[in-house]
Write a protein that binds this DNA or RNA. Sequence first.
DNA 1: GTTATTTGACCTGG
DNA 2: CCAGGTCAAATAAC
Length: 277
Amino acid sequence: MAWPPPLMQVMDDLIKGQEFATQLQGLLRDNPKVGLLMDQILQRFSRAIDAAKAGAGEWSSDVQSEVTYGGSGGGKRKSGAGGDSSRGACRRRTQQSSVVTKTMNTLDDGQAWRKYGQKYIHNSKHPRAYFRCTHKYDQQCAAQRQVQRCEDDDDDKDTFRVTYIGVHTCRDPAAAPVHVTRTAGCHLISFGPTPTTTTSTTTTAQVGSGLQSLKRESGGDQEEVLSSSTPAATPPAPAWPDLGDVTSAPHCCYAGVDFLEDYTQGLEYILPFDLDG
DNA sequence: GTTATTTGACCTGG
DNA sequence: CCAGGTCAAATAAC
């Protein structure tokens, strides 16, 4: 895999951070609260590394060609109104964005998804549910995911094959306010609030009747550590912080900003390069 | 009233 | 033509 130099630095730091967090987890395992927090931190690192890897693949093949895909046209149409030329960009995914498949027993991945379709797939017992990022339109986030129950699971043990397509280029304003400050030669991006005060209110779309209730209890899946918080009333969405060129900066975009987002919950990360390019 | 989900139709690539 | 992916009207939930 061809790793762009900035990504090598990011990967190195991610892996180092994961190692340090693992060591810290060993030292603090007596405190269950801290243990839970460490689990979440480790899981975030794992996801960040996955996202960075996915971004690297995207980098080497087709950089950011997916971000502005779709958006208009298409859709349900009764006979007679068709034939517009704006349909030139096909709706079907063409495998140009990063695709990551995970097996999980929860669908709560901390991201805000909105279900837009469900389909029974040939030779599959269970339907496949299609989700897009809630911020697809307001923040042009191209992230999608597909969820399908594993063929061999039973009612007692829900496991799902989740395919993530593309990376999040959005920030959930309610979940992760972002502050960007400049230090000498680099930007300090901090995502807050801190885990001790935050109440994760990320709304995770639930798959409806077709997939039945998707369990959120009992962690232990391969990728997820569940948030212990229970979503209450939708929090007032604060004004979206002016991110400046952070989300559009090429250095951030090569892997989307999914791996940066995984530094939420109080983690801070100093980018070793200038976002202004 | 607003937002999210459901679901059948529509569309495209193979 | 078929299977998979997406849209958007209808409906449900809040």
